[in-house]
Amino acid sequence: MTSRMAAAALCAVLAGCAQNYPQNAQEFRQMLPGAFMGKVQTLEAKRPLREVARTFEARAPECLNVSVRTISQTSTSYQNILTTYKATVVATAQKAELHLQREYKGGGVIVPGKVPPGGLYMLVADATPIDKGRTRIDIYSPSMGVDVIIRAISGWATGENLGCPDMTKAS
């Protein structure tokens, strides 16, 4: 729950209290580095960009286009929230981008601002070539609650683990 609050805090900070959420991946990249609870991390994969891009294209839709239903109940409250994730991969000869968006339905979740189609941006991963056999991955994300997603993306990039993240562990 702490990480969920952190994600909410990040959204609020990114919104700048003016409900100004990033409307595309580029805005997300620009707003995140200076944001509270925002994090940019870099890793290196010893694989060519085209292989990294191919893995992103194969794994991201299968693993990340999912819905998570969260039901929490106490003696005084009941909440049922459906969270839908949407992954988009944009690959060119120079770069591969993985965008992950999240949209909430139900449970009284109110997003005070304009939500872009597909949901709020929660993570962007950019893969760019270092040389013929190595690729740099820059991941823009909240600093909490997305560890399992980042581990999965790192595994896809390096080719060491092609498994999917259990999105019930993301928040």
């Binding site: 286009n65 999912v66 819905s67 998570v68 239903r69 969260t70 039901i71 929490s72 109940q73 106490t74 049922n80 259990d166 999105m167 019930t168």
Partner: peptide
């Protein structure tokens, strides 16, 4: 899934209290 047959096919994942 809620109100579904056991484990039925939804690309859903859930957290239950």
């Amino acid at each position: 899934g809620d109100r579904r047959k056991p484990g039925l096919p939804r690309h859903d994942q859930g957290i239950v209290s």
